[in-house]
Computed example of a mutant assay.
Amino acid sequence: MWVYYAYGGTLPDRHREWVLHDATCRTWVLRSFLRSLVQVSPVAAALLVGLGVFGESWPLALGATLLGVLVVVRISLSLAEQSAEGRLVRHGFPPGHAAAVRRQADADAAARYRAVWRQE
């Protein structure tokens, strides 16, 4: 089910809170990075086989595939925030909800920090 979600599928309503957590938790960027690796891995494997990883040109095939994976990861991380918002909208949350939840969590963390370390 996670693979379906990783490729852009919409999960049943009972998983809405998990989708919200996935898009707003402290590690949401890391989760987006791992999701992009899962998405590109079948294409990378096909390129490795197709370009001749088992032949004499395996260094070229490996280098070309690695550069392709790096480009895909760079683009997916550049669009991570929009992707998270889109996933939440597909699961019934209003647009901008992920950013608002993350801002509130940051404000709460800052308030906790000030309460502990900035007592005057």
Rank of each mutant, 00 (worst) to 15 (best):
29 V>S: 09
17 E>M: 09
105 A>N: 13
98 A>Q: 02
21 H>N: 13
106 D>H: 11
104 Q>L: 12
20 L>Q: 02
88 L>R: 11
98 A>K: 08
88 L>P: 02
43 V>F: 14
66 L>I: 00
116 V>R: 15
63 G>F: 00
37 L>H: 07
62 L>T: 10
13 D>H: 08
51 L>T: 07
65 T>Y: 00
13 D>W: 04
91 H>N: 13
24 T>R: 04
110 A>I: 06
108 D>P: 00
64 A>L: 10
103 R>V: 05
79 L>D: 15
96 G>T: 04
81 E>P: 01
68 G>M: 08
22 D>K: 07
35 R>C: 04
98 A>N: 03
117 W>K: 15
110 A>D: 13
114 R>E: 12
64 A>W: 01
16 R>C: 01
82 Q>R: 15
3 V>D: 07
101 V>W: 06
64 A>P: 00
49 V>R: 10
25 C>W: 12
111 A>I: 04
21 H>Q: 10
47 L>W: 09
51 L>F: 05
95 P>T: 04
7 Y>N: 13
44 A>S: 11
102 R>F: 00
53 V>S: 11
5 Y>R: 09
50 G>Q: 07
41 S>G: 02
59 P>E: 03
18 W>S: 03
62 L>E: 05
62 L>P: 01
117 W>G: 09
39 Q>L: 08
56 E>A: 14
42 P>A: 05
65 T>N: 00
23 A>F: 02
66 L>W: 01
55 G>N: 06
106 D>F: 02
86 G>C: 12
109 A>G: 02
33 F>L: 12
49 V>K: 06
102 R>G: 00
108 D>G: 02
114 R>L: 05
112 R>G: 02
77 L>A: 12
68 G>F: 11
109 A>F: 01
97 H>D: 01
31 R>P: 01
25 C>G: 14
65 T>A: 01
44 A>Q: 10
53 V>C: 11
38 V>H: 05
78 S>D: 11
81 E>T: 12
81 E>Q: 12
32 S>Y: 02
114 R>C: 03
22 D>I: 02
17 E>G: 04
17 E>H: 09
32 S>R: 13
3 V>E: 08
5 Y>Q: 09
44 A>W: 03
75 I>G: 04
99 A>G: 08
45 A>C: 10
22 D>Y: 09
43 V>G: 05
5 Y>L: 09
28 W>C: 07
58 W>V: 01
